[in-house]
């Protein structure tokens, strides 16, 4: 086994991993951080999305050893006790979440967008979320939620 050191949600972690261990397996099976989900394991569905040094990636096809020394943010990492992120508030209030399975990935993909583009157009939101699948909402409420969060964050 190889020793991997990384920062997850601000905390330095050290775990033992194999050559084919994925970042998703590190998060779920070793650190018990369960907001990133196992959906397809092929990089297609987006339920495993996390931020790696602030950039949106698929943790299911990210080799764990390639994130040595890097910083990972999951949905748990943007939730402060008693103080949720405007995106979380907007997804709750604007019905951007139904079954909830795609929600962690959706919110992180949205955060990755708003971090670099605080005033996205509807089309830019669609582009940013184009790799995150949802089977419940039909996406309209999700896009509404992201735009509402962007408005709230500007005011």
């Amino acid at each position: 086994m190889h020793t991997l050191e990384l920062t997850v949600n601000g905390q330095t972690c050290r775990v033992e991993v194999g050559l084919k261990t994925t970042l998703l397996e590190v998060l779920r099976d070793k650190l018990y951080i369960t907001s990133p989900k196992v959906g397809c394991n092929t990089g297609d569905c987006g339920t495993c999305s996390v931020l790696l040094d602030g950039v949106l990636v698929r943790s299911c096809i990210t080799n764990a050893l390639s994130v040595q020394g890097k910083s990972v943010t999951t949905l748990e990492g943007i939730t402060e006790p008693g103080d949720i992120h405007p995106l979380q508030k907007a997804f709750h209030e604007h019905y951007g979440s139904q079954c909830g399975f795609c929600t962690p990935g959706m919110i992180l993909a949205s955060k990755a967008l708003l971090d670099v583009n605080p005033s996205p157009t509807r089309d830019e939101v669609k582009q940013a979320l184009s790799g995150n699948l949802c089977r419940c909402t039909g996406y309209v409420k999700i896009i509404d939620s992201v735009l509402a969060a962007a408005d709230e964050m500007k005011s």
Partner: peptide, 26 residues
């Protein structure tokens, strides 16, 4: 060799390929 892993790790997860030595290019 391994860079982004978006092709290689899909093959690994599908058990089409079992890595023995990986050389990271990042």
């Amino acid at each position: 060799v391994l860079a982004g892993g978006t092709d290689l790790m899909v093959a690994v997860n599908k058990r089409k390929f079992k890595p023995q030595v990986l050389i990271y290019l990042g």
